[in-house]
Design a binder for these strands. Structure first.
Length: 619
DNA sequence: ATAGGGTTAG
């Protein structure tokens, strides 16, 4: 009878036990023990048996049991494979202490043991020890290879240490590993996350054979560095080269669409995803919700959201944020209570989105209530971003004093976002003194940002302090500050058209200006008066450069009118905040032409319809 | 026996 029970039998019995008992009771533990004893005495004992056990271990307790067995059998001394596997499993369970003591007790370490250790430290975020172990292993005589290098390159990425990154890059070069997929892709990733995009590009272009991960890294890098169109071009090139896309690269493409705000492209990508065999998991689904919202359709975003099987905090936060920047604060708040009912706990980002939503919809009481509940009820400690939202919320509602009081209570250092919010509030309500203080703080924090100087000079101008105006202007020209160029873009059937102020580079430029001229006449009849005194908003360099008439927003809308079918919605995107005169202009255009106009600016969405904007002139 | 790229705000 007993003879028929082979080691294999015990192995599978044992593995089953390991699999299904996350917290073994004493009875189970006894069974464990029996099984282990029997296998131990088996003549057919095989190290592969231990490997299979290790793989199936579900918790640290089980790993330690196997560890004890392996030790009594003397397998740690004799079998490097089993020992390394054990080491690796400890790292997987993030039990670096156990891993380390095991590792230090090795009589013989090989290349793999070192790599596992370096990777293990990197995985739990112990970057110092990861690098230290790498250095030690070099001293020990192990060559840097295609396994251990990606780990340390990733450490440089995560610590944003491009100096160390370059050093390791040279190590890669000296060891002749510049043709290795893993190593070079890691380098490209490192450079791009450290914002040295040019180096990333150069490396990527030099790769002889690029797999899907290399492409993903580069596509993500383009989006991140502000060139999402290039990201889409790269994706097409990847397909042309016959590389099969997977879910991760598609998420990056979705992100690129979100950043451009290109609705048609978004739909094409969506269809592509539906046709392909990828299921919509949480991550891809969340990215898609975000994409539709940023392409101007919060309703489609909601449809995708409702269709998702799995949703997490991030998904819910994305939806809340979407309602926020589309000016539908009430729905954002509703989503929040729905989320709580589903048992999902909010995080700090959820609250940023929520408070932002309240402030952009003028939900003052609601916002205050949420703000005071966040720490008490949800254990989310307010940070500077939350304070900024509150200053904005109170400031917009005219409660400057409350805003100022809140600021006094902030223990952490005030950043430019906070001062900016306060400044916005002061400007709306003509609080010159505090506006001046805020603007000066902004300049101190970011002396290289021209927008802040312009703001301050506008404040002085409004108060009639012309000497101060002149001083600021001089300061600016003295420092030769670079101006942030304003752009507006619009998508038609197959491409993105981008306009700057006074732009004549578009092939249909003549038509565009004709249309604009004609349109203005119509608008004036309807009561539109160009607002040449518009100095409320920051960074709008275009004001100084050109006349109102040829603002990039207006050019893009004129192009939209002549290039899209009547009645269809016109969607434009702008990298800065929309100018006040263009805002008025859009209202009139929506009235005169009976078109819906959706404008995405740096801050939020504006939906224009029949002469009114969804922001309620509150932005 | 060891390896990489993915989701929310600002």
């Amino acid at each position: 009878m007993f003879k028929t029970k082979t080691p294999k039998f015990f192995a599978s019995k044992y593995a089953t036990l390991c699999c299904y008992s996350s917290a073994p009771s004493i009875a189970e533990a006894t069974t464990h023990q029996e099984l282990l004893e029997q296998t131990q005495f088996s003549h057919y004992f095989d190290p592969r048996f231990y490997l299979s056990q290790l793989i199936k271990c579900k918790n640290l307790y089980q790993v330690k049991q196997v560890h004890a067995q392996v030790t009594t059998n003397g397998f740690l001394e004799n079998n490097q494979i089993v020992a390394n596997k054990l080491l690796y499993i400890y790292c997987l369970h993030k039990s670096l202490g156990d891993a380390c003591s095991l590792f230090c007790g090795y009589s013989e370490k090989n290349v793999i043991s070192w790599s596992v250790m370096i990777g293990g430290y990197a995985k739990v975020g112990d970057f110092m020890n990861s690098l230290r172990t790498f250095r030690e292993c070099l001293r020990y005589g192990v060559r840097p290879d295609s396994y251990n290098l990606p780990f340390v390159i990733r450490v440089c990425r995560d610590t944003m240490d491009v100096k160390m990154g370059r050093l390791i890059h040279s190590v890669v070069y000296k060891n002749g590993l510049m043709l290795d997929d893993f190593v070079v892709a890691a380098l490209v990733d490192m450079y791009s996350k450290c914002k040295v995009i040019w180096d990333a590009k150069e490396l990527f272009d030099g790769m002889p054979k690029r797999d899907v991960v290399a492409w993903t890294v580069m596509i993500g890098a383009c989006t991140e560095s502000g060139d999402p169109n290039e990201a889409l071009v790269l994706f097409d090139r990847m397909l042309e080269e016959g590389v099969v896309p997977d879910k991760v690269v598609v998420v990056n493409v979705v992100n690129a669409c979100a950043k451009i705000g290109a609705m048609r492209t978004a739909k094409v990508v969506h269809e592509y995803i539906m046709r392909s065999e990828f299921s919509l998991d949480v991550i891809l689904g969340t990215a898609m919700v975000d994409m539709y919202a940023k392409c101007g359709s919060v309703d489609v975003a909601r449809e995708v959201f409702d269709g998702l099987r799995e949703k997490n905090v991030i998904t819910w936060s994305a939806m809340i944020a979407a309602y926020g920047y589309h000016g539908q604060g009430h729905k954002a708040v509703d989503m929040f209570s729905m989320m709580l009912r589903r048992g999902i706990l909010p995080n700090k980002i959820t609250f940023v989105s929520l408070l932002y939503a309240c402030s952009h919809s003028g939900l003052v009481e609601e916002g205050k209530r949420l703000f005071s509940s966040m720490e008490k009820e949800y254990e989310v400690k307010p940070d500077i971003k939350h304070f900024t939202c509150m200053v904005d919320l109170l400031g917009r509602a005219g409660k400057i004093d409350e805003s100022l009081k809140l600021i006094e209570d902030i223990a952490v250092e005030k950043d430019e976002g906070l001062w900016g919010a306060l400044l916005g509030a002061c400007r709306i309500h003509g609080h010159v003194e505090f506006a001046e203080r805020a603007a000066k703080s902004l300049i101190e924090l970011q002396p290289e940002n021209p927008g802040h100087y312009i703001l301050l000079s506008n404040i002085y101008a409004k108060a009639g302090k012309w000497k101060d105006v002149a001083k600021i202007r001089e300061l600016m020209s003295h420092q030769k500050l670079k101006k942030i160029p304003g752009w507006t873009w619009i998508e038609d059937d197959n491409k993105i058209h981008r306009f700057s102020v006074g732009d004549h580079t578009h092939p249909r430029s003549m038509e565009i200006y004709e249309k604009l001229k004609y349109l203005l006449k119509e608008l004036e009849i309807a009561g539109y008066v160009p607002d040449t005194n518009f100095v409320l908003h920051d960074v709008d360099e275009e004001l100084k450069l050109g006349n109102l008439f040829s603002h990039s927003e207006k050019l893009a809308i004129a192009f939209g009118l002549i290039s899209t079918p009547e009645q269809s919605t016109i969607r434009i995107m702008k990298n800065l905040r929309v100018c006040g005169d263009c805002h008025t202009f859009c209202k009139f255009v929506s009235q005169v032409t009976s078109r819906m106009i959706v404008v995405r600016d740096a801050n939020r969405f504006h939906h224009f319809r029949e002469g009114a904007c969804s922001c309620g002139d509150y932005w």
